[in-house]
């Protein structure tokens, strides 16, 4: 999932640093993610993972790092059948 998020960051995030080598816990806002960039990223993640973020998850913290985004998506996705 982290690599998918990295790819979406490259396409949608308009970062000032290279998303493909960004550590999982790196602060995305420090890496150049703007408020509008985080909105574009949010919509791209919803489409890619077929999830919909509820209002209480539409915060800066949820989109603050690759790891935070992955944790949020994992919380929203149905548990895969065994």
């Amino acid at each position: 999932m982290h690599d998918t998020i990295r790819a979406l960051l490259t396409q949608s995030g308009r970062l000032t640093t290279d998303a493909s080598t960004l550590p999982v816990d790196a602060d995305l806002y420090t890496a150049g993610l703007t408020s509008h960039g985080s909105v574009t990223l949010m919509l791209a993640i919803e489409e890619a993972f077929d999830v919909e973020f509820p209002d209480h998850m539409l915060t800066r913290e949820v989109f603050s790092s690759i790891g935070a985004i992955a944790a949020a998506v994992a919380e929203l996705r149905p548990i895969p059948a065994a």
Partner: peptide, 13 residues
């Protein structure tokens, strides 16, 4: 919905 995210971000900052 994206506006709610922008509004939250604007308030947090």
């Amino acid at each position: 919905r994206q506006g709610r995210m922008l509004a939250t971000s604007q308030r947090q900052q």
